[in-house]
Design a protein around this nucleic acid. Sequence first.
DNA 1: CGTTTGCTTGAATTCTGTCAAAGCAGGTGG
DNA 2: CCACCTGCTTTGACAGAATTCAAGCAAACG
Lengths: 192, 192
Amino acid sequence: MFEDVIAYYKKLVPHLTDKELSALQDCFRIRQLQKGAFLLKEGQVCRHVSFVNRGLLRLYYAIEGKEISIGFVSKGDYTSEYESFLTRKPGSHNIEALTNAELVDLSFDDMQLLYKSYPSFQEFGRKIAETLFIMLNQRNTALLVLSPEERYRNMIINNDSILQNVPQYMLASYIGVTPEHLSRIRKKMSGH
Amino acid sequence: MFEDVIAYYKKLVPHLTDKELSALQDCFRIRQLQKGAFLLKEGQVCRHVSFVNRGLLRLYYAIEGKEISIGFVSKGDYTSEYESFLTRKPGSHNIEALTNAELVDLSFDDMQLLYKSYPSFQEFGRKIAETLFIMLNQRNTALLVLSPEERYRNMIINNDSILQNVPQYMLASYIGVTPEHLSRIRKKMSGH
DNA sequence: CGTTTGCTTGAATTCTGTCAAAGCAGGTGG
DNA sequence: CCACCTGCTTTGACAGAATTCAAGCAAACG
């Protein structure tokens, strides 16, 4: 039930004690999500961080009738509207289940409690934030430095497995182009 | 000498003790930077985080003969090639002093030591990473969702003081357009 | 002064988005 | 088994956005 998420914690902070891990497990809540359901809708305050036990999720903005994907999260990764979670303000994007999914939730309040009771979790929180920063930094660099075609190539190389299960039009906005344009990029790429 | 940087720490983690702050001060090193000099060049491993006591710095990529600005840091803020600092790998961007500047350096090794000796600094590290994440997240959203003109407007509103001292062609790449195009955007904006 | 540095302008070109239509599955019901 | 949806991708024609290259201009500086 919690094996994967516990392993995730142990990997980031190897020196966590059994007592600490047990306190952590007491805070976990399992949540099931149907395909098409929302983990979070824009305007809501995000009150949990969620580990994906099973399934595939998409994070996206809905702006002026259009959807702009900002990330995809699959089994074995953490997700959240982390800015909303940290600031306690309404979030600006949606998190949607692209397949049936099982999540392990940890609430904001429980997290603060863990921070207070066991300093080791401060270290976990720090490393999570650092990891998220690094990922976002790389994404940011790609948006500024690479062409759409290069971003698509990168995506194929790095996220092949996710790519299989996501419709192209969702990838298009992630790369920063329209679905039509991505289609043409693909055509051009196959043309050699 | 260290008043501003100490205040920065106190603000993020109010419960830091005098003993902890004193240990921190022992790790600080002042560094002076001439206008045009580099705090860091791409390819180097970033071994410090630096608080800006005085002056203005620019972070940028140099790609294929072009420079792409990714941020500006002025008095009262922290800067670093944080990804390189965290991963201990060579960094990919440059940090240049746009004016004469005075920095307060804290080394990676000292920081790890502080983390180990005083758990409160874990909390500081966490909050720093969280803050950086939030800033980067907002920047990312702007790049995906807003038009160049809207990004320029935002920049005027949020960073007016920095803007005064930075040549326009450096702002252009930050916004994601060529200098010529930014010039035209400004013309169009003044045209009403 | 003359040089440098940065900003503006113009014209041609390339890139990307829009809109509309057609193609292509996979799934469902008859 | 076929006909028909439905959701997604591809294509084409066109318009708009942004870059490139080249030239001119103005302020700042030695």
